[in-house]
Design a protein around this nucleic acid. Structure first.
Length: 378
DNA sequence: TAGAATT
């Protein structure tokens, strides 16, 4: 199994960064080998009414559904519409979507609170959507032959003379620890408009950047390769220690999923013949927290001002979260001290519980467990 | 020498 050597303190350290600093613009965890920027996309002047309410959400986890997207962003305010963009043929998520709020204030709040949120292996980006038009399509360039010493900033400086850069990225070899990032000498530049990209090709393809010994190649990028369901599965379930980048722990607690599954239900793993879809096929066994649509987790000792966003921030990094709910007093709207989180996969829920139970949030120590029948219904 | 940024 690949579920060995899981470093618990690493998870907590990474999470604390997120909780204390709030959402950031750091996208380094989107893919094992990339660095990228996170240029916001300011609203274009004189555009349609949606310009202050419509958001584009990038770097979504591959398995996140439109309903989960709506659930996440609906925790901010009323949503007018929500769309996850999918491949027309396979139906696979393309990893981005749109959320249009009723109130521009909620759109702004969503950018402030959800941009930079870590969900599984991704750090989502939330920004205003530009008005859809043909001129902004096919504006992405693939650049190769870059000097290995060239930084992302230098790359942007080189290309910015041709137009407004929406995103830039230099691919890097896998990061070991927090240092030593080695450029692969290739990257991407997305311009605001296709004509800008065309001009950049004319001006920079086969040219040597300042100080470089070799010319670079600049061309339109191909579409991202489709992944097979097999590859998606392995991305989801392999190498868990890659999923929580952060400082290496000196005294790492070790967590073994198989042990926990064995202790709990006597099953070897989610792929055991006994467990077609996790452990739900274990007929006749009363399984705590299992609500049919996922695993309901009880979170106790939340502060009165706790909101849904804190639950997304805490549980999102551990796997697929489909819903969060803070239980509030009807009159005061203050949190009554507890809430619920629904996670799709048992193993991810188990890791989240093992990691977050006893976690100190502010001056409170959380109690986190599978929801039992005697507690409040979600 | 390959990322899921325009519904």
């Amino acid at each position: 199994t690949c579920w060995c050597g899981f470093k618990m303190t690493q998870v907590i350290a990474a999470m604390e960064t997120q909780l204390s600093n709030g959402p950031t613009c750091n996208n380094t965890s989107n893919g094992p080998s990339t660095i990228s920027n996170n240029c916001s996309s300011p609203v274009e002047s004189g555009s349609i009414e949606d310009s202050k309410t419509n958001l584009i959400v990038n770097y979504l986890p591959q398995n996140m559904t439109q309903e989960e997207l709506k659930s996440l962003f609906g925790s901010i305010g009323e949503i007018e519409s929500c769309k996850l963009v999918r491949d027309k043929i396979t139906g696979q998520s393309l990893g981005y979507g749109f959320v249009n709020y009723v109130d521009p204030k909620d759109a702004e709040k969503a950018i402030n609170t959800l941009n930079g949120l870590r969900l599984q292996t991704k750090t989502i980006k939330v920004s205003y959507a530009r008005p859809s038009s043909a001129s902004i399509r096919d504006a992405n360039l693939y650049v190769s032959g870059l000097p290995k010493t060239m930084t992302q900033k230098e790359l942007e400086q080189l290309f910015s003379q041709y137009g407004r850069i929406i995103t830039s990225r230099i691919l890097v070899d896998q990061v070991t620890g927090e240092e030593t990032i080695l450029s692969r000498g290739v990257g991407f530049i997305r311009f605001d408009r296709r004509i800008e990209a065309e001009e950049a090709i004319k001006g920079l393809n086969c040219q040597k950047p300042p100080g470089a010994t070799e010319p670079i190649t600049v061309k339109f990028a191909n579409n991202p390769s489709q992944k097979t369901s097999q590859a998606l599965l392995s991305q989801l379930y392999q190498s868990p220690n890659r999923r929580y980048p952060g400082p290496l722990a000196q005294q790492a607690q070790r967590f073994r999923l198989d042990n926990l599954l064995n202790m709990a239900y006597g099953v070897k793993s989610r792929f055991s013949p006994m467990a077609i879809d996790g452990v739900t096929s274990l007929a006749g066994i009363n399984i705590p927290g299992h609500a049919g649509t996922g695993w309901c987790i009880f979170v106790y000792n939340l502060a009165p001002d706790a909101d849904e966003s804190i639950l997304w921030q805490m549980f999102g990094p551990f796997g697929a979260v489909t819903n969060v709910k803070v239980i509030r007093d009807f009159n005061t709207s203050k949190c009554k001290g507890f809430g619920f989180v629904t996670m799709t996969n048992y193993d991810e829920a188990a890791v989240a519980i093992a990691s977050l139970n006893g976690y100190r949030l502010g001056d409170r120590v959380l109690q986190v467990s599978f929801k039992t029948n005697k507690t409040h219904k979600a």
